[in-house]
């Protein structure tokens, strides 16, 4: 295992997939000469040239569309959104073309494209540059949605996303690019899409989360372990499709569920989890599925207000206590 930052792990994934398959190319704002707004594409222009590392104008809708077209004729584009806050300008291409094309063509076309970039609350970037966009993608038929929590998962899942034959939305947490972690040094390390990961085992409560929420959940689990509460933490890794098998196995053991995400509550990822769990495992539940989310407001600019809006380990602990009927 080598220790590296999230951005280095993602860079390795891109590098390895571009070396492995000449059909893979990277396109987006500042990915080439500037080496990436967040330096994820560092060094790739020098290594692979301007035909495969393509700088674009600031036109998300158009380069998303160029990517869909390239994917339809057999290439494997990786489209970098400088942030997913800007990807909403490209939703028409992502929803109406990338996600629908396979069905619309009766399976004659596939669209093996990866849209990737930073997502979720950043730091003091306010209402338009600090949004968790996963729920806007997670109810779109035809898309897969992935959001890794660690550098290791970032590498393994990005490689899988690029190899997948369907469009994948790959959401990197904006505040985790500098986070360091151990990354597998297997020659070709690929993690399967659609499989959740039991990151910590426990028998009392299941906490289901992804991306930055994973770290809140692990923090809460560690704190509660000192009081003898054994929390099982499931990192979804893939938000759509959900790995209900792994979730069900855990809920049958713990009978209590807390979900953790940074996005808005109403219609968030926790809602779908609450449906699937309360429906499929009705007789197993000893408490309602309880959600920890960001507050239902646009992200404020002020740092103190940001702290009030976003979930923290203390909120996860409170929810775990609630589903255990403890105060």
């Amino acid at each position: 295992m080598a220790t590296m930052t999230f951005r280095e792990a993602l860079n390795q994934a891109l590098d390895e997939e571009m070396a492995r398959d000449p059909k893979v190319f990277l396109m987006g704002e500042e990915v080439g000469q500037y080496q990436g707004a967040y330096k994820v594409s560092q060094g790739l222009l020098d290594k692979y040239g301007g035909d495969r590392v393509v700088d674009t104008p600031i036109t998300e809708l158009s380069f998303a569309g160029v990517g869909v077209g390239a994917a339809m004729v057999g290439l494997r584009p990786v489209i970098e959104m400088m942030t997913f806050n800007f990807a909403i300008l490209a939703l028409d291409q992502i929803y109406n073309n990338a996600a629908k094309m396979r069905l619309m063509s009766g399976g004659q076309y596939k669209v093996p494209i990866t849209f990737r970039g930073p997502n979720g609350p950043a730091h003091m970037l306010s209402a338009q540059h600090s949004q968790a966009t996963e729920s806007w993608f997670a109810n779109v038929p035809g898309l897969k949605v992935v959001s890794p929590a660690t550098p290791n998962d970032g590498k393994g899942l990005l490689k899988a996303a690029i190899r997948d034959d369907d469009p994948v939305i790959f959401l990197e947490a904006e505040l985790m690019y500098n986070m360091k972690g151990e990354v597998s040094d297997e020659a070709d390390y690929v993690l399967p899409l659609g499989k959740a990961h039991v990151a910590r085992e426990g028998k009392d409560v299941t906490v289901i989360t992804f991306s930055k929420g994973y770290h809140h959940a692990m923090g809460a689990a560690e704190a509660l372990a000192k009081d003898g509460v054994e929390v099982e933490v499931i990192d979804l890794r893939t938000i759509r499709p959900l790995d209900m098998e792994t979730i069900a196995r855990s809920v049958r053991k713990t009978h209590r569920v807390v979900t953790v995400e940074e996005g808005w509550p109403y219609g968030g990822i926790g809602a779908e989890l609450a449906y699937c769990i309360s429906h499929d495992l009705f007789d197993q539940l000893d408490a309602p599925v309880t959600r920890v989310t960001g507050l239902d407001v646009p992200m404020p600019y002020a740092e103190n207000l940001e702290h009030l809006v976003l979930p923290a380990p203390r909120d996860v602990i409170a929810a775990i206590n609630a589903v255990r009927y403890r105060s």
Binding site: I269, E272, S278, P288
Partner: peptide, 14 residues
């Protein structure tokens, strides 16, 4: 998946 039915379910079961 992810429709409003999911949210209403989450609220009702809470």
């Amino acid at each position: 998946s992810g429709g409003l039915g999911a949210e209403i379910t989450a609220l009702v079961q809470e």
